[in-house]
Write a protein that binds this DNA or RNA. Sequence first.
DNA 1: GGTCTCGTGTGGAACGTTCCAAGACTAGAT
DNA 2: ATCTAGTCTTGGAACGTTCCACACGAGACC
Lengths: 348, 348
Amino acid sequence: MSPSRRHSDPQPTLATVAERAGVSRQTVSNALNNPELLREDTLAKVRAVIAELGYTPNRAARQLRTRSSHMIGLRFEEAQEGTSNATMDRFVHTLVEATARTGHHIVLFAGDPDDPLDGYDELLRATAVDAFVITDTYAGTPAADLLSRVGAPYVTFGRPWDDPSARHPWVDVAGAHGARLATEHLLEVGHARVAWLGWEAASRIGEDRRAGWEAAMAAAGTSTDGLGVRITDNVDAARMAAHELLEDPTVTAFACASDTLGIGVLHALAERGLRPGVDVGVVGFDDSLGAQVTWPGLTSVRQPLEQVAIEIVDLLHTVLSHKTVTEPARMLEPTLVVRRSTLRDSAR
Amino acid sequence: MSPSRRHSDPQPTLATVAERAGVSRQTVSNALNNPELLREDTLAKVRAVIAELGYTPNRAARQLRTRSSHMIGLRFEEAQEGTSNATMDRFVHTLVEATARTGHHIVLFAGDPDDPLDGYDELLRATAVDAFVITDTYAGTPAADLLSRVGAPYVTFGRPWDDPSARHPWVDVAGAHGARLATEHLLEVGHARVAWLGWEAASRIGEDRRAGWEAAMAAAGTSTDGLGVRITDNVDAARMAAHELLEDPTVTAFACASDTLGIGVLHALAERGLRPGVDVGVVGFDDSLGAQVTWPGLTSVRQPLEQVAIEIVDLLHTVLSHKTVTEPARMLEPTLVVRRSTLRDSAR
DNA sequence: GGTCTCGTGTGGAACGTTCCAAGACTAGAT
DNA sequence: ATCTAGTCTTGGAACGTTCCACACGAGACC
């Protein structure tokens, strides 16, 4: 607890503490940063004074001297309206918590949506942040390229799809594995012809997930001819695509590249009077709030975002302490959260 | 545009620029902060060198000298799982954009969920932030009280419910007005007995919104006896409450204190085979992603979060420039977004 | 011609911390 | 008694910026 203190009071500084404790500035600094250098009684005395005055080192001064701000930059992209993908929210929160443990803070910045590089350079040149976390590797990694060029440290959430020569640290979730889990689950509960609703072919993430569906179908010995669809991530597009696929009565299940698409399928079912789970199975992707609250509950692939954040912070820590990163690429596995959109028994 | 530069190159400083331009450090500083003090040709020359070297002032040094970090602290609370309220996401994004325009950045920090004060003190004592934005005024304003006590600047999103003597700047959205809009809309499309699903009485926001419903009902001359329910913000609680209210066949519409509750009502309708909009009207609150994607679309009260962020930044700016705030309390009005959960004609 | 003002520009000092090289003290060895 | 090694502590300098007091020259005024 800090003692109550009015704003008008002067902030205690290192010098204040030193004088009060009868030691030099450097000794107080050591008490904070290299306590093992001090004799026990000196350390105790200094710490007592620090606590008494409620002293906290001035970040600006420390930053100026050490050239390290303990701030991590994150370009904050907004979830698109009309999609259910509020993944960012949960991820950012876990990232904030994970960085707090190492004494770092997250600085958000905005950028021109049309310029993926906007904002990075300015923070970097002002030495306002030590490193960046890059989340948007959907459309290649222009920001990562920029940072590599100027030698700034960073970690990406998302693997470097286009660049096999990339050597930067990254954390990602095995989307193909997730889609495979989803498809296998649908096959297990008795569906045979599982359709795939995915994104346009330009999306590497989308193609990766689709590959998981194809693998599961191949393992089951079922052809995927005419079952895979590529559309935009949008409820209505999914609804219409589902209507079309449902014209074929053998199609009784949908694995989707996102919850948005899964919810679109649920719309189509509602309009056709089909019962989710009982008549048609649906699995989404991301375990968004939408999947959780939509009727009757959408089974979904959940990314371990908490673990992703922890791994990212660990990598950042390694990079920032100038150690060599022994394991710069980390792939995590998603899990399946089963809800009623894949439960077949009607006695629910 | 900055010229490409390797990390190993020394960062240009004020002194570098001064030497190159043949002027003193102070002149360069003035070119940046008080350009009107310089003669035109001097200014042009300095600016040219700044651009040539890609110079950006070091934030730490500036912060140390001016005692102003240009950072705004925001305690980032996570949306609860199982609710559809991802309001924070949209608000934070607009806040980041609005602060960027004044050269400020948002620093996120976490805190012990059980201690509403956790985290503030540390950032403050380290002079890491200039001010705070407080979003959680649901449970009184303990954080605001702390900051007032130590004289730290802050602006809250949410009025000071419990403390009529509070004089701090705040921005809020008139929840009662929103609920009134919702209820009037339901009455207009032909419903007579409009039920209210709200939060527990302890929630000041919930009671405020409820008051809007009561006002609209009173204006229509309809009694609210037995129509108002107080429950927790949870899909299932709303679903069960709706089932109970629907036992009374005269109840044909629901105004809700949140989208989560509204979605719960939609669940009950689905289970009863009632058609949203056609048989029973439902309005939610917050215009969350859930309201947008859920079937068949949930009419909802939308808060002008973009405008809220802009007003907050404006207030912050005023407070930080030590001007007196002429208008410290700003109330904004929400709008109604109509979707199919309140459309009666079946030819939809 | 001297003083005053105004518009510009200057160099020293300061913000609060950590780095650095060296000083002081203690204890053991010569 | 002196030296040596090790432990602990010290004061000066530096990080890059802005504040401050002042210097300079040009024109205005008495």
